[in-house]
């Protein structure tokens, strides 16, 4: 974790009100892993007192750049969307814990809902680089909001679902998972909480449906042998999810981002944002 001053090198609207921006931040590019995030300061402190958290969308170590992908949802992101090339942003990062891919995993399933693409996008690159095969299931409201194929590596198998059926499968992205659950050694997801909760339910039933043992659970090891929140717990999980929550500090100090974990409260910014699905107490009273 560091405070750094990063220069905006490109910015474009890839979808209506959704922006892709590249920043020159060599120390960040050199250390960040897929699933981690950054906390970006907006300049108008008197009006906007909080930083904005963004997943690191892609990383280019060679050029020392990272990209973020965001939707304009308020004043802070609106200001960011208007930032020009050459502008410098104050960034705190990398923050949080990354996705953990089991060394034995060969087939990686990514599941993204809408802006959740930004949460899993970097893992597609990381997994391909490590010689794994990647299928990405993506869900959006309609064709107009579907993440452009041109922004994905060619090697990724890209399967789309839209709520209105204007592109790909008509329905939820979670409907598509059944076709891949046997193929995938591990799955990684980011998106709206109901989507993640559905995936977690599917993941729980998967063992029974397929009659397979969990990765890394051989030799009589049980869930409790890997401390909740540990890299080990995530590495062994079939499904890892990247959770979202409003944040204050993003370093674990304010307890503003806390959600229910099965073993008690967890900070999305510190114990997460990536969790093994079974570490989250889904559907607790909200």
């Amino acid at each position: 974790m560091r405070l750094l001053d990063a220069e905006l090198i490109s910015s474009r609207e890839i979808l209506p009100a959704q922006w892709l921006q590249a920043y020159h931040a060599p120390s960040l590019a050199g250390s960040v892993r897929a699933g981690q995030f950054i906390h970006v300061r907006t300049p108008d402190y008197s009006g906007l007192v909080l930083r904005r958290p963004f997943s690191v969308n892609t990383v280019d170590r060679a050029t020392g750049t990272v990209t973020i992908h965001f939707r304009v949802t308020g004043k802070g992101t609106e200001w960011m969307s208007r930032a020009r090339q050459g502008e410098r942003l104050d960034i705190l990062g990398p923050l949080g814990r990354p996705f953990e891919v089991n060394p034995r995993t060969r087939h990686v399933l990514l599941v993204a809902g809408g802006l959740g693409m930004a949460g899993v996008r970097a893992l597609a690159d990381e997994a391909l680089e490590a010689g794994r095969r990647v299928t990405l299931l993506f869900g959006a409201a309609s064709a107009a909001e579907v993440y452009p194929t041109s922004l994905l590596p060619d090697e990724v198998e890209y399967v789309v679902a839209t709520d209105d059926g204007s592109l790909g499968h008509r329905g939820y992205v979670t409907d598509l998972v059944a076709d891949y659950e046997a193929w995938a050694d591990q799955a990684f997801a980011c998106g709206p909480e109901p989507m993640l909760a559905t995936l977690a339910r599917l993941a729980r039933g998967r063992d029974e449906r397929l009659g397979v043992a969990h990765l890394g659970r051989k030799g009589g090891r049980t869930r409790s042998s890997a401390a909740s929140g540990s890299a080990q717990a995530r590495r062994r999980a079939w499904l890892q999810v990247s959770m979202e929550q409003n944040m204050g500090c993003a370093v674990g100090a304010c307890l503003g981002c806390v959600i229910h974990g099965v073993d008690g409260p967890v900070r999305v910014c510190r114990e997460g944002p990536v969790f093994a699905a079974e570490e989250i107490a889904w559907g607790e009273p909200a």
Binding site: L50, G76, N246, M247, G248, C254, G256, C257, V258
Partner: peptide, 9 residues
């Protein structure tokens, strides 16, 4: 502590 969300600008 309290139920999320816990902070907002």
């Amino acid at each position: 502590g309290n139920e999320p969300p816990r902070v907002t600008e």
